[in-house]
């Protein structure tokens, strides 16, 4: 962090500025004390505060993850319902085959293939970066400009494909299970419309496992964004982290991993809380005194 021709005094000054002359446990206590306040020190490579670096990169990653999660849900759930209801139609078979490919292709290969087809051969979509962004305070968004939206298409598809196939297969399996139960037969006997049976009764009862898995997958989307961001040179936190790993930039790595850990804890907590909102049985159980 000092130049090669820095004097002995300058070096000593930097050492005491950074607290490196203190014993190990004092350094560690200081690190923890600052970390809980969101302060992780200076990046070894860029010489800037880590919190500023992360804050700059946060919007890009969150936008990408949110769009990918939304895409996975709005395509995955209907896909799962359809493949469960029309099990033998060719479209359902086709969707299942595609989902098998989605599960077995590594994420970065999907990204490379999409770049090859849509950016190199067809030249329709940009293959790297975020396009133009607009700033609102410290938050930058690419959702409002045309080039920003175009740049978002390939990365969000790449990121969501795996989650989409997972949700589709899960919804399909759960639907098939629920459609076999007695209350569905009874609902048919009552002469309810297919629509009411499928969406009012069957889909609702598949929601508990679906919420668990999608909730937990939301965390993985942010973690897997590392790969997608590397493929598309998307200027998010994952790219920052990978660069930090290859340069052994410890403060950035520590800050990113603490952030991810926080995200995972928050997501697990909200998934647990959502159970109560979705499944009335849990609420009743709470009223019954524990045995």
């Amino acid at each position: 962090m000092v130049g090669q021709d820095a004097t002995q005094e300058q070096r000593a000054q930097l050492r005491s500025d950074l607290g490196l002359d203190q014993p190990f446990y004092v350094q560690f206590a200081r690190f923890v004390g600052r970390a809980v306040q969101g302060e992780f020190g200076l990046s070894l490579r860029q010489g800037r505060p880590v919190s500023t670096l992360l804050k700059e990169r946060l919007p890009a990653t969150l936008e990408l993850a949110a769009v990918a999660a939304l895409l996975a849900l709005i395509l995955g759930i209907p896909g799962g319902v359809y493949t469960a209801l029309k099990r033998n139609s060719w479209l359902a078979q086709f969707l299942l085959a595609v989902s098998l490919v989605g599960v077995s292709l590594p994420t970065f290969l999907i990204g490379i293939l999409l770049i090859l087809i849509f950016a190199v051969i067809l030249g329709w979509l940009p293959s790297f970066g975020r396009g133009e962004t607009e700033a609102f305070g410290w938050w930058t968004t690419g959702l409002l400009t045309k080039s920003g939206l175009k740049a978002l298409i390939l990365p969000s598809i790449t990121l969501s494909l795996f989650q989409m196939t997972l949700i589709m297969r899960l919804v399909r399996a759960e639907m098939l299970e629920v459609l076999r139960t007695d209350y569905i037969k009874f609902a048919r006997a009552r002469g309810l419309t297919d629509r009411a049976i499928h969406f009012g009764h069957a889909l609702k009862n598949t929601l508990v496992p679906v919420i668990t898995i999608t909730g937990l997958q939301l965390g993985s989307i942010i973690a897997f964004a590392i790969i997608t961001e590397t493929v598309f040179q998307w200027p998010g936190m994952g790219l920052l982290f990978i660069q930090a790993v290859s340069f052994a930039d410890v403060p950035v790595m520590a800050a990113y991993l603490c952030f991810i850990a926080l995200v995972f804890v928050l997501i697990n907590l909200s998934v647990d809380l959502l159970y109560y909102a979705v499944d009335p049985r849990l609420r009743i159980e709470r009223l019954v005194p524990a045995h």
Partner: peptide
Amino acid sequence: LSFPAILIALLIDGVARA
């Protein structure tokens, strides 16, 4: 298990590099 394997692997790899 609550973290994806890739994060754990990246963590170990990063620490080893440091």
